[in-house]
Every structure is written in structure tokens, then in C-alpha cells.
Amino acid sequence: MDNLEVSLYDVTLRDGSHAIRHQLNVDQIATYAKLADSAGVGVVEVGHGIGLGASSLQIGKSLLSDEQMLTTARENLKHSLLGIHVVPGYATISRDISKAIDCGVDVIRIATQCTEADTSEQHISYVRGTGRRVFGGLMMSHMISPEMLVQEALKMESYGAEGITILDSAGTFLPADVEKRIGLLVDSLKVPVGFHGHNNLGMAIANSLSAVKAGATIIDGSISGFGGGAGNASIELLAAVFSMEGYKTGVDLYKLLDAADIAEKLFSVLPKITSSSIVSGMSGVVSVFSKPVARVAEIYNVDPRDIYFELGRLGAIAGQEDLIVEVAQALAIKDFR
């Protein structure tokens, strides 16, 4: 039996934070939250690009505190659920998660690198105990085999995750890669499976469609793709394509299309596919490195594409922004010689 319902998980106000160096302001959050809410998306995820507690010199300080962002969104959501992204190693239960729950968060997605699901046990169990909805996320999911990905997802399911989303953080998947992974996950898990795409290779929509055809029921997207690197799957495009294929998303397409028009002005910069992001996708380097790589390449006068390939070779993951400087310095010395 085909499951023809797909829930759209709107990461505009979280992944989009990467696109503007984490400078989301109150007006942007309030305006967009209202638009997404009235369009009827399932979840509106809000926060710093790497999630709760991640505002830092390393990754970038956000303009607003986690609390300000969440409270602002909370005030502007009536139907859509308010979500946050949490990476263990950045956010802790006592410092961050408990406060976010006090701010009225409905859905908490605990995301780890795809190999490190067991760092989420405490956090997932904690959220389950509070009665809030908790999902698991596996980032950089291209880094391990589909079979190993299933093993890690099973861990999160056992801790109490009510859905597992795999994130193509580097935008490196092609549709067949997604189909294989989602298919295996759907066969192996009892909880819903989701997919989060990036558009480095122009595949975000195709990959998301491939995911739902393989049985995924939670699909991440952002308005006009407003997200890290080359951006995410455009949520308005997802809604359009899914409706053409007969999937029900529960959103009002016209309202979402209107939101996209407004978003263009609201966020001023919308991501696009650049030569760097193509290379980043090919080399499997996390999309959110695009801004810091561009900056560092300029400082050290090296080709950003060389930086990407070297980072890919080193297996860099999000959070290792410090490695960019190291790689650029090494490349600069090599060039000089």
C-alpha cells in the first residue's frame, strides 16, 4: 500500500540561518513563521544553523539568542508545530534543551553525525520523558553504507525517537542513493522515515521525490531553498511536485507560493548553485562550510575548490570550521613554493 501522506518539515528559519551568517532577526522570524503557519506546513524549525546552543565564534554567533528566536516564532504559530534542531556536543539538556521546552517547543530533532547515534541516548530519552515529540536525525548520511545507516537509525528508534530523518548535509546524493537508503530504513524501522536534501548538485527536489517514492513521509524543505550552501529543497517546489504525483502534504500551495515571493525580499539573499557548491557536493563536504570557505579562500588567496577537495579527503564534518583555516594555510604555503 502506498502511503500518500507526506509531512513538510520547514527548516527555513534554521538551515536558512547559515545563508545569512546566522543573522536572522525578529522581523524575519515573525513574518516567515506566520506565512508558514498559514500555509499549513507540519513543523517550523527555528534557530541557529547548527541548532540549539550552537551560536559561537567557531560556527558563527547568531544575532538573537535561542530564547528570543523561539519565543518570537512561538508567538506567531497557531497550527504548525514549533521545532528545534539539537546536536549533542553543542547543546546540553540542562543548559539548552530544558530552556527550549520552557519556550514552548513542540518537536525536538536530536541530530548526530551518521556514525554517532549513541551520543543521542540521553537527549532523546529526556525529551520522551517530557512528553514532547522527539525525532532523530542522522547528518552527513553519505559517509557510511546504507546498511550501517540502518544500524544507527535503529539505535535512535530504541531510545524513543518517533521518526528518523537522514540528512544529505553535503548535497552529494543522487536519486538512486536516496532510494536505496530510504527503502532500507523504511523496511527496518517501525517509525516514519524522513529526508533532508541539499541542492549542491541540483538534486534536492529529485532526491526528495525519490525519498517519498521509497516510503519517506517527512520531507524537509525551506522557502525558495533558503538554507546552507546551495540551499535545501524548495518547500514550495516540493509541495507542487508532490501534489502532481498525488501525495497529500496538507499545505495550501498558493499561500506557500506567495510566501516564496515574500521571502525573496524578506531574506534578501537566496542561495544559488555556485562553482564552489558543486565542488562541495562532489567532494562530500558539508554544505554549511560555503560561507567560511569563501571567506578563508579570500584571506589566504587560495582556490576554494582546492579547499573543498582537501576537506573532503580529510572527512571534515560540520563543526570542524577550524579545519578550514588549517587547510587553507597549508595550501597557501604549497602554492607559494
Partner: peptide
């Protein structure tokens, strides 16, 4: 903050202060 990196061969530990 802490990152666990699964790269193979295993990477050496490193720490950045900002």
C-alpha cells in the same frame, strides 16, 4: 563544543581556542 569524527584512517585529536 565537541565533534566526534568518524573519518578513516582515524584523525588525531585537535582543539581550537577562540
Amino acid at each position: 563544543m565537541i565533534n566526534l569524527n568518524p573519518a578513516n584512517p582515524a584523525i588525531d585529536m585537535q582543539t581550537t581556542v577562540l
